[in-house]
Write a protein that binds this DNA or RNA. Structure first.
Lengths: 160, 160
DNA sequence: TATTGTTATACTCTATAACTATA
DNA sequence: TATAGTTATAGAGTATAACAATA
């Protein structure tokens, strides 16, 4: 692949080398995500979890308790999807819904002790898969990638 | 966001700061892709194109002529999807299917002169949107991001 | 009247599988 | 028998909208 160039027409402003078209970024990100997702999904499958379940566990492990609205906002998940994913997790005993005293509409979601266990187990079991995912990047490079990606994705936020 | 930590349980091997869970990479990539895709789709909409159409144009502009099978391989697109996308592009006059002499099953896809025009116009019209997409990264940082992302995504390839 | 969470519905995307015409 | 391309179908994923309870 990528053997020929400029087979079509004269040089133009956009006649760039390789994948330098700005639009290629979108495609590159899609394929990067596909690769990461298939690796990570493989690490979670033995635990009966999918990435979207783990997104909730990560957020709860990180932020503590959140109601479903804030949880959805935090992980960019539709509120209807939040309901289904929390249903799954609650059925598995990994999170609990807790009513709050001041507003009977709201239900806080908490990670359970068992949820924390599974969270840890996923990281232990997934370590080899994760190593394979990033092995051709050095540790510094990986950190740089995460940093740049984070700033690309959340342009308005200072911390994260 | 990201105000509390360790609200749950004692410190563990996986009790990392922030989004340092390996699994968070998948989620970060998803959101990075979502942000890029919505920006770039906005740049293509006035031209009546979607990202998947542009994926084909980029590949043809870059590699010259490809048959549909190789085209699908190059951009990780299912052969059935290739048919539909090439249908759209051909209807718009941006690519042409050309039979080859040696194998009457195969149809090469070529970008047309009008396809090159639209390719260039997309970059011209999209420039402000693209600037907005990456403005909080320096040029060097953007190049680094693309480089790391490319190596992350295509671990086995030397060039690209 | 607005909001939280739930349920139901519709729509898009993708993956699969059949089908044709060639080889 | 295998392959390139096409078409049709089914499944998953996502987005939308209606709904109930509460504020």
């Amino acid at each position: 692949m990528a053997e020929k160039r400029s087979a079509v027409g004269p040089a133009k402003a956009t006649d760039r080398p390789g994948d330098a078209s700005p639009f290629a970024v979108g495609l590159l990100l899609r394929r990067a995500h596909d690769r990461a997702a298939s690796h990570l999904a493989g690490a979670l499958r033995p635990l009966g979890l999918e990435l979207r379940h783990f997104a909730v566990l990560i957020e709860l492990h990180h932020s503590g308790t959140l109601n479903q609205r804030d949880l959805g906002t935090a992980i960019a998940m539709d509120k209807a999807m939040v309901v289904r994913v929390v249903d799954d997790l609650e059925r598995a005993g990994l999170v609990e819904r807790k009513p709050i005293a001041t507003d009977r509409r709201v239900r806080n979601v908490e990670i359970t002790a068992r949820g924390v266990e599974v969270f840890d187990a996923a990281h232990v079991n997934g370590a080899p898969i994760f190593d394979d995912l990033v092995e051709h990047l050095g540790p510094d490079e990986y950190r740089t990638l995460i940093d740049l990606l984070t700033r690309f994705t959340y342009p308005d936020e200072k911390d994260r």
